[in-house]
């Protein structure tokens, strides 16, 4: 239900005029789709580790950069893209 909660946060904040981007794990892609969230990056990571494995700052930075790039590139929503690479990067 966490992903639905964040989906509602995304919609409310964006409706108030602030751009949002969510980083979702693949298992909850359907939540971003059903809730028509403005911008969502999907990572092929397991529950509880949406940015990647612990102590892998290069993977965290790559996911974070992909989320920023989505904010720059998306011209309309819902915009949903897949993060390249698996859990190991």
């Amino acid at each position: 239900m966490c992903h639905v909660s964040v989906g509602h946060v995304a919609r409310a904040v964006e409706e108030a005029g602030v751009a949002t981007v969510g980083v979702f794990v693949a298992a909850f892609r359907f939540v971003a789709r059903d809730m028509s969230l403005p911008r969502t990056l999907i990572t092929s990571h397991p529950f509880g580790r949406p940015l990647g494995p612990a102590n892998r700052p290069e993977r965290h930075a790559a996911v974070f950069e992909a989320a920023l790039a989505l904010v720059e590139a998306a011209q309309s929503g819902p915009a949903l893209i897949e993060m390249p690479g698996g859990f190991g990067g």
Binding site: V4, E15, A16, A26, A27, S36, P38, F47, G77, F87
Partner: peptide
């Protein structure tokens, strides 16, 4: 990870608990 995805897949025809037709947009 693949089994997590499969387990949570609501399947075709499932009625979402929360669904919206359009996305708010504030770039």
């Amino acid at each position: 990870i693949a089994w997590q995805v499969r387990a949570y897949d609501p399947g075709e025809g499932a009625v979402p608990a929360y669904a919206y037709d359009t996305a708010p947009w504030a770039p």
